[in-house]
């Protein structure tokens, strides 16, 4: 199957006056289209930095990142934004909804940025899928944490992304709510056939992925692929 993400010899280091701090050190891996991958590791291992580089949120110090056949390293910030808008969805630990927009408007944002028309039915459909049709006109502050994360899920799927990045998606939720959100995430993902990359500490969540990449001190120390019979 075709790869959606190719990471080759990627390094990230920060240079201060006389010291150099290496966050990621010559990392390489590829991810197949439609697969689910969990990136785990202790704090400071470079998980979020890796996610940022994969999603085109940051530049690598060395190496190359190819997302959906687009080489990100040579692109300007605006070109990378266009790539993200076209192919990428995001889910954050802190939900990151725009506080000034209603639930429905938050879901519509990625489509509006694309300049698409008649997007309301699509947003309402997604809102229905996450079970929050009744909350369409509510602002984020009027929603619970679980509800906000469900809106965030709907937004992430609104532009039918080729790849979805989730950064500790249950980090701020209690056990019961986490379970519901995870189920919804995997269901929506399966339905849309999206590639899912989850950064998490939660080994239960990681174990649901097809593949687990373990990071430590900026290096890949484990890459487990689930074997299906």
């Amino acid at each position: 199957m075709e790869n959606i993400l190719n990471i080759k010899e990627v390094s990230k280091y920060y240079q201060s006056a006389d010291t150099s701090l290496t966050i990621l050190d010559k990392i390489s891996f590829s991810i197949r289209k439609g697969s689910t991958v969990a990136i785990t590791g202790p704090s400071g291992s470079g998980k979020t930095t890796l996610l940022g580089l994969c999603a085109g949120l940051d530049h690598a110090s060395a190496g190359s990142v190819e997302l959906n056949n687009v080489l990100l390293d040579q692109l300007t910030e605006d070109q990378r934004a266009e790539v993200r808008n076209r192919y990428v969805g995001f889910i954050f630990q802190n939900f990151q909804l725009l506080p000034t927009l209603t639930a429905l408007e938050n879901i519509m944002v990625p489509l509006e940025l694309r300049g698409e028309k008649n997007i309301r039915p699509r947003a309402l459909e997604l809102l229905d899928k996450v079970g929050l049709s009744a909350r369409a006109d509510h602002y984020p502050v009027q929603l619970s944490g679980g509800e906000q994360q469900r809106i965030s899920l709907a937004r992430a799927f609104s532009n039918t992304p080729a790849i979805l990045f989730a950064d500790e998606p249950t980090g701020n939720l209690d056990g019961e709510t986490s379970e519901k959100v995870i189920k919804l995430l995997f269901d929506l993902n399966k339905e849309a056939g999206t590639t899912l990359i989850i950064v998490t500490h939660d080994m239960d969540l990681a174990s649901r992925a097809d593949r687990i990449i373990r990071l430590k001190s900026g290096l890949i120390v484990g890459d487990e692929q689930k074997m299906y019979v």
Binding site: R84, F90, R155
Partner: peptide, 9 residues
Amino acid sequence: LLRTIGAKG
């Protein structure tokens, strides 16, 4: 956030 989900400058 807008940049992350694809807004141009």
